[in-house]
Design a protein around this nucleic acid. Structure first.
Lengths: 192, 192
DNA sequence: TGTGGAGTATACAGATCAGTATATCCGCGA
DNA sequence: TCGCGGATATACTGATCTGTATACTCCACA
C-alpha cells in the first residue's frame, strides 16, 4: 500500500525505472518529464512501467521514497561518524555539504512540494513526511546532547538547513554559512 | 527587451493576463498550467495572449517580475515602517510574516527555480536575480545599522529567510522561529 | 509438463500541449 | 476620413501527455 515505508522488493526492471525516474525527475522537474521518457531511459516498455507502479503519481512517490531512504542513511552515517553528542547535532549539515556537491538542483523534496500542491498526492505526502522527520531528528539529537531548549533549537537548525539546501543551486555560500551558524548555536546551547 | 526591469506599461488585457497567470502559476505550478487556461481565466483570447507576451516563457518571466515588484515594495514598506536602523535589518522578516498569511504555497521564486532548471529561461533569471537582491539588501541594512561583519551576518539572515519561506507551507512554526533568531543575531552584532 | 509472473512489442485512445492562420471588429488620433 | 493598434472569434497544426489493449516470449518452479 504505502510505497515508501517498508520497501517492497523491486524487480530488475522496477529498479531501473526508479533509477531513471530519480535522475530525470530531479534534474528536469516532475511535471516536465513524461513516462515515455522514463521508460526509454530505463530500457523498459511503458507497459512494464505501469505493471510495476500503476500510475505516474505512484512512480513519483516511489522516486521520492527512494531518495528519502538514501538521504536518511547518509544522515545517519554522518551522525555515527561524528565525534560526540554535541557534534552529532550538526551532523546533518556535514551530510548536506557533501550531498550538495553531487546534487546541484537543490532539495528534491522541496522541489516536489513546489510542483505537487495537492496534499493528497502520494508524492506530496512522502516529501512532507521527510521534512517532519528531519525536524524530529534535530530535536532528538539536541536533547541527547543536553542542549537547553531542544525544541526551539531544533526548529532553528531545521530552518537553517532548509534555507541552505533551498538556495544551494544559487552558489551564494549559504551551505557553509548555515553550517557555521548551526555549530555556533549548538555550542551556545550546550555551554549554559 | 527585459520584461522585469523597467516595467513596460501593460494594456488592459495584458494586465488581466498577468493577474490570472500570477494566481494560476503560483497555486498550481508553472508547467502544470497551460496557456489556454490562463486565457480562459483572464477572459482573453489566446491570440491576444501571444500578441502581448510572445511565448509562455516570456509570460512566466512577466509573472515573476510582477511578483518581484510587489514583494520588493512590501519589503521597502516594512523597512520604512521600522523603528530605527537595527530593527530595519530584520524588517524583511516582518514583511514575510504578513506575506505568508496570504500566500500559503511558499516562495514563488524558489518554486519557479524548482521547475525551471535551465538558467537561460527568462523566468529563471528573474527568480535568481530576486534572491541576489534580497541578499544584497540584508548586507546594506546590516552595514547601515553598524553591525559587525555585515557580509557574514547578511548571508546568515538570508539563509534564515529562505528556510522560513521554503518551509512555510508545512506549518512547522519556521517563520516565527526564523524571525526570532534573526533579531537575536542582529542584536548580538550591534552590541559589540 | 505446464502454469503463472515478468517482461517485450506495437498500436491506440482521448485529452492537452504550445503556437499559428485567417478574418473581423472597435476606438482613437492625425 | 483614414489608418492603425488592441482585441475578438474560430479553427487548426503537430507534438506530447497519461493510460490501455492485444498478443507475444521467456523462464523458474512445482
Amino acid at each position: 500500500m504505502d510505497i515508501g515505508s517498508d520497501a517492497p522488493p523491486l524487480t530488475p526492471a522496477g529498479r531501473r525505472i526508479v533509477d531513471a525516474a530519480e535522475e530525470l525527475f530531479y534534474e528536469r522537474g516532475i511535471t516536465a518529464v513524461g513516462v515515455d521518457l522514463i521508460a526509454e531511459h530505463s530500457g523498459v516498455t511503458k507497459r512494464t512501467l505501469y505493471n510495476r507502479f500503476g500510475s505516474k503519481d505512484n512512480l513519483v512517490a516511489a522516486y521520492l521514497a527512494e531518495r528519502d531512504r538514501r538521504w536518511r542513511s547518509a544522515v545517519r552515517a554522518a551522525v555515527d561518524a561524528s565525534d560526540g553528542a554535541e557534534e552529532a547535532v550538526t551532523a546533518p549539515f556535514e551530510a548536506l555539504r557533501s550531498w550538495t556537491t553531487t546534487y546541484t538542483r537543490g532539495c528534491a523534496f522541496l522541489n516536489a512540494l513546489a510542483e505537487l500542491p495537492d496534499p493528497r498526492h502520494p508524492g506530496h505526502r512522502v516529501a512532507a513526511e521527510q521534512k517532519r522527520w528531519l525536524l524530529g531528528l534535530f530535536e532528538e539529537l539536541a536533547a541527547a546532547a543536553g542542549c537547553h531548549g531542544p525544541a526551539t533549537l531544533a526548529t532553528r537548525l531545521f530552518v537553517l538547513h532548509e534555507g541552505a539546501v533551498a538556495t544551494a543551486p544559487l552558489s551564494l555560500g549559504t551551505v557553509a554559512a548555515a553550517g557555521d551558524l548551526a555549530r555556533a548555536l549548538v555550542r551556545a546551547a550546550v555551554r549554559r
